[in-house]
Design a protein around this nucleic acid. Sequence first.
RNA 1: AGACCCAUGGUGUAAUGGUAGCACUGCACAUUUUGGUUGUGUAUGUCUAGGUUCGAGUCCUGGUGGGUUUACCA
Length: 557
Amino acid sequence: METEETKSLNFIEHIIENDIAEGKHEKRVHTRFPPEPNGYLHIGHAKSICLNGGLAKKYNGKFNLRFDDTNPETEEVEYVNSIRNDVKWLGFQWNNEFNASDYFDQLYDYAVKLIEIGKAYVCSLTPEEVHEYRGNPTTPGKDSPDRNRSVVENLDLFTRMKNGEFCDGKYTLRAKIDMASTNMHFRDPALYRIRKKHHWKTGDKWNIYPMYDYAHGISDAIEGITHSICTLEFELHRPLYEWLNNTLETTHRPQQIEMSRLNITYTVMSKRKLMQLVNEKHVNGWDDPRMPTISGLRRRGYTPEAIRDFCERVGISKRENLIDASLLEFSVREDLNKKAPRFMGVLNPLKVVITNYPENQTEELEAVNNPEKPEDGSRKVPFSRELYIEQEDFMEVAEKKWFRLAPGAEVRLRYAYFITCQEFIKNENGKVMELRCTYDPASKGGNSPDGRKVKGTLHWVSAQHAITAEVRLYDRLFKTETPDKGEGDFKDLLNPDSMKVLTNTKLEPHMKTLTSGTSVQFERMGYFCVDKDTTKNHLVFNRTVTLKDTWAKESKK
RNA sequence: AGACCCAUGGUGUAAUGGUAGCACUGCACAUUUUGGUUGUGUAUGUCUAGGUUCGAGUCCUGGUGGGUUUACCA
């Protein structure tokens, strides 16, 4: 009998299971992901998608994608397409796709109803005056002079607002709640504003647009959403969310649940800041591999599986949190380790001549494609007299615990031979330009028949067979853990070395057939994926993440 | 300042009022034809003061610390 491990529940799952046990919401679970189409999705959104989509799946419920398009000034169809694409790529299929703008007619009717029952009025205060009248948390606000306008007059004015008779900003529709409430959102919040703007979906039909608070809760109710999950800053909006649905007596009464947003070290997570990085060209677009956007992570080589795993690991709670970037790296390494085929690629080539290897000889050596997946088989890699190895694999004077190449030292060339460094050649600047080594013909394949051990194994590539490629090495986007939290401009904290382009890397010949988007491991160096900038004659790789490097840590001591 | 929310190792997250666990990170060791992977071990934690209780990380009160809120953005 298999003992199924009972996984602990997060606080939202606790709520849902209680609700189901109590028969709330007819025991249904219906979630939604409600992005505003005014930017690209980032990893924080991924967390929300995984949560909402995952909850629906787990409790046999439904999951809606709803574009929260109530502000025609910032929203664009380009973003709509990228959002659909990103959600799908992450592995979530929504049951319904809606737009808040689908409900503009109903929303309008509800507003009329609010006016009719004396719970809303048309207000002529300017934004400055509204601010003045609102008071502050310790002092109550003042009633708008229009607060007691008659229902008839409100109805007339609201109709004329809709009909476009007034210019932008002339009037707003406000809920009539309580100007003395300690919750500022209860001090007669705006419900509608006049904006004579073209809307990407409804065109020029509307001259007035609903505010978020008004549209969101009602949209949830219309769709029969049961658990409306949002972030902590909406906590104070919840009473208004409930007031609206209760006052309007909507058929469904969804419950809003707030959780903390995702923060990760060395990056920023606000759409506004990401937009700035793009617009001011600090990065090369929304899908720059250094961006925490879903499209950026995808181009960097992150897999949907890795991102989902990460979102699972960070957990759900109501506390402020700052996730260590190494957790994201862990998730992608774990996934790619299982999947990525191995190749040998030399990032910074150092020429090696095997002096006792015949001049014109070439042989094909057998190399395993993925030690984690024996079923992936093996391939042949050409070997010849002149090779490239990694510059950092040779040290003129070996330090402690160094077991790579050094004068007189013997190492293994992976899947090839043992070689011993006999001499090295420097240029006039003292830089090592070439190594002259001898090989042990008996060690073919990488083992010596006499049982002799070597500590180091190096990757290599045959000089005459190698292909040249461009490799882009990425590092953290910012120099500090919390660029958000600094005093000055967060852009001053950008890491100037976040991208390093290598144009002369040498790869084993098989790699020329790799196509855009493919992830591979460069043995000993890391995981890389083929970038979309690749052309027939120009291969470009992005480094997704390095391998864990125990030596790098050791050498720093 | 008012209201609201939050407080568990370095980080994140668990624990019907009953043995504080898991993961990442760190460190050490073993294995290894990737200084990868894998395995083993180890370090560090319930903000504070009271109260309720046989028993409190959990419930109550005060304090402290952090967050949110005062847009015709979402």
